[in-house]
């Protein structure tokens, strides 16, 4: 216990980093995922092809490899160097590791968001889209005004589960120079070999504090939506 209390600031820094990566990458992944879902149901062939190809490639690639690719290949391929500000927000210094984690997780989680949203689009009654079309709405209007608002309702529980997985996936950043919770666990246990069990338990609890309420909320919502249908 002593190790955790004595290093409370490091612990907090790791927690904040995990939260920051989760939230920023989560928002970006959500936006990109919805756009990809739009691509996949759009009337325009090239967009559909792009959406399908992107999903198949990224979803079947391990996240660790996405990190490795961003770290080693993007600068070699297209010369894009990710800007690193080194500013500090909420006690988290924005270094390479944090930026890579945000980019990698946004690209990766978007594929899962896309698939969930797409299945939500499929679950909206056919009559809704037909009615919208017969009123003369275009594809864009049908999708954004009629279908998506209804799709999001049934999509919320599986979407929460996607984000729970996403939050846990931020731990991969520990292997790539980001000081988040797992990296903190690693560092603390190397410094305090006697307290290893307590340290890991503390870090585990830090994750559970975020993930368990979310997955219970998903369970409850799922019941609610299921009854309403």
């Amino acid at each position: 216990m002593g190790a955790l209390v004595a290093n409370a600031d490091l612990l907090w820094q790791g927690f904040a980093a995990t939260l920051m990566i989760s939230v920023v990458a989560g928002i970006l992944a959500f936006v990109w995922g919805v756009v990809l879902a739009g691509f996949r149901v759009s009337p325009i062939g090239p967009l559909r092809t792009f959406g399908t190809a992107y999903i198949n490639v990224v979803r079947n690639t391990p996240l660790t490899l996405v990190f490795l690719f961003l770290g080693g290949s993007t600068s070699a391929l297209v010369g894009i160097v990710v800007p690193v500000s080194r500013d500090t927000y909420f006690g988290v210094t924005i270094n390479n590791g944090i930026v890579f984690a945000i980019v990698a997780l946004s690209l990766y989680t978007a594929t899962f968001v896309c698939e969930v949203v797409r299945s939500g689009i499929n679950s909206v009654g056919v009559g809704q889209a037909e009615a919208a079309r017969s009123m003369g709405l275009t594809f864009g209007q049908t999708l954004t005004q009629v279908v998506l608002p209804q799709a999001f309702r049934s999509v919320v529980p599986p979407l929460i589960n996607v984000f729970v997985a996403h939050i846990k996936n931020t731990s991969v950043a520990a292997g790539f120079a980001a000081t988040e919770l797992v990296a903190v666990a690693n560092r603390l246990s190397n410094a305090n070999p006697g307290d290893v069990f307590v340290i890991f338990m503390g870090i585990g609890v830090a994750y559970l504090v975020i993930t368990v309420p979310l997955s219970i909320a998903a369970e409850q919502l799922e019941k609610k939506v299921a009854v309403a249908r």
Binding site: V164, K168, N169, T170, S171, V172, A174, G175, L181, V182, A185, N186, S189, N190, V196, F197, F200, I203, G204, Y207, L208, T211, V212, S215
Partner: peptide, 16 residues
Amino acid sequence: FRGIPVLLTMYFGVIA
């Protein structure tokens, strides 16, 4: 165990 990262369990195995 659904709520903690797989990587944390793996590190636990190696370190602890």
